[in-house]
Amino acid sequence: MRAVRVIPCLDVDAGRVVKGVNFVDIRDAGDPVELAAAYDAQGADELVFLDITASSDQRDTTVQMARAVAEQVFMPFTIGGGIRTVDDARRLLMAGADKVSVNTAAIRRPMLVSEISAEFGAQCCVVAIDARRVEDRDDAFEVYTHGGRTRTGLDALVWAGEVQRLGAGEILLTSMDADGTKDGFDIPLTAAVSAAVGIPVIASGGVGTLQHLVEGVTQGGADAVLAASIFHFGEHTVADAKRFLTANNITVRPPH
């Protein structure tokens, strides 16, 4: 039985959640522990913390954040952003993160995926792929870095297959065309990558409605759906999302 995971994504800068999370019942909207606990209570299956910390000397605060979250909240969470070495991964995993997500560093040096996978197991190693449609093509997608600004020349499907071969346990797939639009996932991209690999795919980018989550699963073939803004501003709770998915015949862990 496949049970689709619903995953809120939080942006973190220097150990604090940023970019507006607005829950009525939260005292400090920037506190990752409080937010993680709130999402746990709503029935979130996992959390992804995306570390946007620019300066490397502030990265210690991310490790401290992982430790604080793991001490208080007993649900799985992933940290992505700025992980360049096995040692970066080790510090976060030892602090209590369940998985690390690598992106740019894996493109620069693909063996990083193998190294993390061999050291900690494939299940710890998520590879984030940011892809854009190739102009005038509906069926070709190119991998980008730096938030969709820098082209790599890599084909998204080829790269997805390659990271699986290198030992990735999971792919976090973001459409840079859809991201921020609230028009829904890029279904052709999601479907193509899901079909191309034998490891779980988390669909990301573009969610504006609960129906979009359904489409990511039924049409995109995603194993998990990730969203940020629809959850952060109280538009929908994770529990709402799960009830909607269930009503559309998609198996999820029921909300509490």
Partner: peptide
């Protein structure tokens, strides 16, 4: 089994 995605990464009943 190779009929399912591996690893199993999910909640299950």
């Amino acid at each position: 089994p190779d009929t399912v995605k591996r690893p199993q990464i999910q909640w299950n009943r």
